[in-house]
Amino acid sequence: MKKSSAVIGCFLAGLLLAASPFARPDSAASINSYPNLPAPIGEETILFTSAGQAPENLLLAKMAEDLHLEGDYRPRALASDLYDYRTLVIIVGNSPYGLQYRNKTFTEESDRIKQLLNEAELREVPVIILHVAGTKRQDNQTVELIETTAPYADYFLGLKSISSSTKIIESMDAANVPVTLVQDLEDLHTPLNSAFR
């Protein structure tokens, strides 16, 4: 066996692993997605919160500010905080470092979201789910959080790149949630706005 076989082996293994995401089946064809909602489903004031505490979830607050939506971004909001709000918007993205930053465990975070969703159901508050990291954040825990929120969701907003994730699409499809997938983050403004106006 030649010395170069180790080098060649590394490059081949690297190429195979790097190309493996392209081998996944694309479920884009089976999605019944909307460009935006035909009529608003939510009302202001809005409680914006994060599920999974990914640092990038903060961009939801910035989008709300750009759209002049009346509401608060409270990443650690509890069920008891919902009384003052008429719509719940959850941005999903689990981050181990984000949870560590907020001194939380995934179980605590998952329980908080479940309680918040139960409270929203009790109060008949519409729930909108966002997923903004696309294919980059499709780990098991993020998918688990999406699956938790799907039965309570009234609208799902995400990036087109997640269409290759069968699990996310299937869970939304099973709960009959209208889905809007956009190309870029910037494009999220229009469907989010249409959910309220």
């Binding site: 990914a54 990038e56 961009l59 984000g98 990291a133 983050l185």
Partner: peptide, 11 residues
């Protein structure tokens, strides 16, 4: 962290 950084850059 890379995902967060790239998403922020995209935004």
């Amino acid at each position: 962290l890379a995902i967060s950084l790239k998403t922020a850059d995209s935004f």
